[in-house]
Each structure stands twice: as structure tokens, then as C-alpha cells.
Write a protein that binds this DNA or RNA. Sequence first.
DNA 1: GGACGAAGTGGAACGTGTTCCTATTATGAC
DNA 2: GTCATAATAGGAACACGTTCCACTTCGTCC
Lengths: 200, 200
Amino acid sequence: MSSANSLTVDDLGSAAQRDRRKRILDATYELAREGGFDAVQMRAVADKAEVALGTLYRYFPSKIHLLVSALASEFERAEAAFRDKPIPGDTSSERVIFVLKKTTRGLQGDPHLTEALTRAFMFADASVANEIHSVGMLLSSMLTQAMHPGKTDLTDDDVAIARVIGDVWLSALVAWVTGRSTAAETGAHMENAVRLLLRD
Amino acid sequence: MSSANSLTVDDLGSAAQRDRRKRILDATYELAREGGFDAVQMRAVADKAEVALGTLYRYFPSKIHLLVSALASEFERAEAAFRDKPIPGDTSSERVIFVLKKTTRGLQGDPHLTEALTRAFMFADASVANEIHSVGMLLSSMLTQAMHPGKTDLTDDDVAIARVIGDVWLSALVAWVTGRSTAAETGAHMENAVRLLLRD
DNA sequence: GGACGAAGTGGAACGTGTTCCTATTATGAC
DNA sequence: GTCATAATAGGAACACGTTCCACTTCGTCC
């Protein structure tokens, strides 16, 4: 696995380059949606995005970087969607469960895509730290906002709870994408965890 | 990924076969300890175990099956070690933290081995369900025993809590083996989670 | 002890992630 | 406009997981 970083939008000077990057990510999504992790083959991505294989590797130094970057931009969309509208629910747990279920349902609507992104996330090593960190921050921010809408001075416990919920969510997702549990079990397990952590 | 199962000890008739299986797992451990996931190369395992590549694949239908089987037998050892001696600690949380820290320290003493086993576990798909299930049961049993030594009529909450702790442990482990968090952070995060879940 | 099927050997071959090299094209300084 | 440099194209080559095949050995039943 390479130690270089993926090229972000900000790294790219010209419009042509930003367009190449977008074509690559679009091709990745499409292949992932159709056939999951295994279908995202680097030659296929390059072909579909109409870039050379070497160029693909210049933009994303490995398949894992590529998929985790795709995951990160998916999360950016999700986080942005929650940021504006208030989250329904009277208690922390209701709001957190709302966010989890909504996000999870979104993912479960695209099982192959989710499988591809989750597998990549779990397989990522330290060289993907930047991309992983983005995802972690976004998830944590979504959860703490759901717990305490508008609150900025979060306690250590708030952050710890969000992190535990994030862990459970990830484990549940892995169990689901790898066919070890059903969507319903995933949901029930997450609700259980939230109930145990946020007793309000 | 193949859909067949790994051959367990019970599946194997002759002593020569059990010996082959053991040689394969020993070779796997040795390579994993030296160089982690990437160093466990199927040709290298076959060479070191002195079996043909085809035989290796007969015993373990993929690299993932092989490594998750190795993980399962590691957990069997750990679980057996806890089963006999009483677990020190006056409260549930103390005992659970003891078990987690002890197990984690054991794993952290062999970073490459742990990396190999954890990566495999996280990458496993439904075809590895049997092996995964063994690991899950052993982990859950260790945790519930630590929470309530000797108790047999566990409540749903007991089981749910054990599962959440297991999830956190796994996420922490993944973060550690992929170099995203230090051993100390891993420990602190697990303690936090236990404290939030078991308030006694 | 001979026959037969299962298990094992040795190794070629294939697919896909990754690397690398050369030729060509775009970009920017002057 | 010209040139130097970087970026891209196109594709060969390599590594390792996996599959497959022809052959040999082992265990078992008669």
C-alpha cells in the first residue's frame, strides 16, 4: 500500500483536473453500486472514467484510498443534509436513533455501494489516515449534533458516547455488509446500544 | 471468495491430517508474527508447513478463512485461560476492564500477528460465518462471565451490553492495528466505554 | 496383496492490484 | 512563439490469491 495521499479537490489546479477527479469518483460509484467491492477494479474505473491507469493511481494511490475517499464524500453529503434542518425527536436518544436509521437506510438502499465502501474502510491502514479521519470527524459531528443540537461546549462524556455509538454503528454495518446480520438486526442492535448509553 | 468451510479438527480422521492442519496453523502464526497480514502468503504458508498449495486450500478455502481460523483458536486459548481462574475485581466494570486489558495487552505484545488476524476478521464475508461466529461467541462469553461470574440466566441487557463492548473493542483494535490510535488511547477508550455502560 | 477412491504433490495458469517505462500532450515562464 | 516541465496516455510487467490439472501416495475393502 502506498504511503502517498489522495489528491483532494483543493490540490487540483485546473478545471480539467477537477473534472478528471470527478469522473474517477463517478465511475467508482457506478461500479460499486453495480457489483460492490470486487467490481471496483482499477482498470475498469480507469476505462470508465476515461483516464489512463497511471493517472488513476496519481489521483488515488490505491484502491482503498479511492474507495475511502468516495466514502468521505458520501458522508459530506449526509452531514450537510443534517446540518441545515433540525433533527426531529424530543430526547437525545430519539434524535440519535433518527440520524442512525436515516443514514443506515440510505446505505442499505445501495447494498453493493455500502459493501464496497465499508470493506475499504475496514481494510484501510495508516496510509489512509487522512481520509479515515475525515469520515470519523463527520460521523462524530453528526452524532453530537443529534445529541445536543446547537451545543458547542461538548463534555468529554458527550464525545465518548458519540464515539462508542460510532463504533457500534460501524460494527453493525460490517456485520450487515458481510451478510452476518440482517438489516432488522442491525437496526435493533443500534437502538439497543443508544438506549444503553443515553438514558433519557 | 470460496463458499466452502475450513476443515476443523473434528473433520479430520487421521493423525497425519491433524498434524498437517497444525503445521499449517503454526506456519501461519509464525509468518503473521514476523510480518503481519501481507507476510502470510499462501505459497509461503504451504512451503513452511510442507504441504502443497492445493492441500492448503483443501484445509482452508481462502487466506481469510485461514487467518480467521487462527484467530478463533487464539480466542479459544484466551477463553480457556479465563474460565478456570476467578477474574479479579469487585465490580462488573473492574472485571470487564481486567479481561479487556489483559486480552488487549496479549494482542499488543504481538502487533504483527494481531494486525493479520484483525484485518482478516474485518475483511471476512458471509462465507466465513462459521469461523466468525465462534469468535463472537467466545468474546461474548468472556465478557458476560466477567460481568456476572457464574451467572447463567443472563438478561437481554447483559447480552446487549456485552455485544456493545465487543463492538467497541473491535473498533479500537482496528484503529490500533491500522496505526490510527496508540495503545494507550485504545485502553482509555475501552475504559470509557465500559464506564458508560456499566455504572456500578 | 490388488483395486479403487480420496487425499496430497508439484506446478502451470489466470485475474487483479500495483509499478514502471516511453511517447505524447498540456501548461506556464520568458 | 518557444522551450522546459509536469501531467497524461497506453500498456507491459510483476506479485500474490486462487484455480486447475496430471500424477502419486495413502487408506480401505475384498
